[in-house]
Amino acid sequence: MVEIQKEWLLSARKGDPDAFGRIVEAFQKPVYNLCFRMLGNSEDAEDAAQETFWRAFQGLSRYDPKRSFGTWLLSIAAHYCIDRLRKKRLNLLSLESLLPEDDAPDPAPGPENQTDQKQGQAAVQELLANLGKEERAMIVMRYWYDMSYEEIGRALSCSISAVKSRLHRARQTLAQRWTTVHGPAPAWAGERHE
């Protein structure tokens, strides 16, 4: 996770949006990615990421410096996305809406690679869309940010045992849905590698 300088935080706490802008710059990618994985399209992800940073800016006085700032931000983002999904009752994400827009900022791969990437991203999103809101957040935190069970529990306000059991259930769902989304899994070579 990205680290921030204490001076940025001190200036931002005084209410300076420019100072907080540096924090936004540093954390835009992880926050946006979480929002995208949760909400499934770039427009909603942009709105949610912007709102996350605004809420963090407004609630900076509540941030405990002993904790990781990134985890705190992701916690705000996850809660916001869960609320948003609850309100919109978005259970399934349409494949069409997942196609990235023309101004995708990543280094440009070739057209074939781009198509592969789009399909891959859409398939991942379709897979994630089979999960419940909280389970989706847990999977994203675990597999994109390598967060520990404890960190996930703290971020989503639930116990470690709840995180473990829900992640287990989420993995089962992902395995069940894999064939539907991707077709048959690759042939098993006979040895399970960890």
Binding site: Q28, K29, P30, Y32, N33, F36, R37, S42, A45, E46, A49, E101, D103, A104, P105, D106, G120, Q121, A123, V124, L127, I139, Y143, W144, R171, L174, A175, Q176, R177, W178, T179, H182, A185, P186, A187, W188, R192
Partner: peptide, 19 residues
């Protein structure tokens, strides 16, 4: 097999970047 494949696809999905 399905779980290993699903996990790999999650790991390989990478980070999405804002505009």
């Amino acid at each position: 097999q399905r779980w290993q494949a699903a996990r790999q696809s999650l790991r390989e999905a990478g980070m999405q970047t804002p505009a």
